[in-house]
């Protein structure tokens, strides 16, 4: 290493101006907000909805957060030039970005259920969605994962490394109707979500 990574700074309260300008009323600059549509055609797999909010240590939903997700397609492949295992579904981007609602802080992603992806040593990981959260007061973007409540998680090579077993449920979404999942991200408190560094 010859250079140091640029230091992180908070996204601040107005991240939406730069990242979802149409959402915040600056509608003349980009045709549509980045990450607004993950399904761009006849994508394979089960259509699902993921909704939730980011909650602070006082139990209040953040109303100025930006949430990004990144996930594999139904076959477990990523729509990325760095994907080495095959070609992903051309009708699925794998990348979503949302601002929380100004009043409630809630966000919703319309996506598909991801397939399993190999992990360390070729062991398969349980299907999951990567989350990245930024907001005013968050100094370095928070990285976490959402798993699905109906899946067998005991053999997942990432989850099995977690020392505090009682915290694992913070990474599992709650079923909320057919094909709908709620994933609330708690920044503090007894149910503080597990955040990762990799």
């Amino acid at each position: 290493m010859r250079f140091r990574e640029s230091a992180s700074q908070t996204a601040g309260p107005y991240v939406h101006i730069g990242c979802t300008p149409n959402f915040c009323g600056i509608g003349r600059v980009y045709v549509e907000d980045l990450g607004g549509r993950m399904i761009t055609g006849d994508a394979k797999g089960q259509r699902i909805t993921i909704l939730g909010s980011v909650v602070d240590g006082a139990g209040m939903a953040l109303r100025d957060a930006m949430v990004e997700i990144w996930q594999a397609d139904a076959a477990g492949l990523y729509a990325s030039p760095e994907e080495t295992r095959g070609a992903a579904d051309p009708h699925f981007t794998g990348f979503g970005r949302r601002a929380g609602d100004y009043e409630t802080g809630e966000w919703v992603f319309e996506t598909i259920r991801p397939g399993p992806v190999p992990g360390p040593g070729g062991r398969m990981q349980a299907p999951h969605v990567t989350f990245w959260i930024v907001a005013r007061g968050i100094n370095l973007g928070l990285h976490t994962r959402m798993y699905f409540p109906e899946d067998e998680l005991s053999a997942d090579p990432v989850l099995s490394r977690i020392e505090h077993r009682s915290r694992i449920p913070t990474l599992v979404a709650k079923a909320e109707g057919p094909g709908a999942y709620r994933f609330d991200i708690r920044l503090q408190g007894p149910e503080e979500t597990i955040f990762f560094e990799c």
Binding site: G57, Q71, A72, E82, G119, N139, Q188, E197, C198
Partner: peptide, 23 residues
């Protein structure tokens, strides 16, 4: 940052295709 900072240190995890790819 007082009410928006996780209290636990982040959990170190291995890099998998989920982190080694990107849009």
């Amino acid at each position: 940052s007082v009410k928006r900072s996780p209290s636990f240190a982040p959990v170190t995890m291995p890099q998998t295709p989920s982190e080694l790819t990107g849009p």
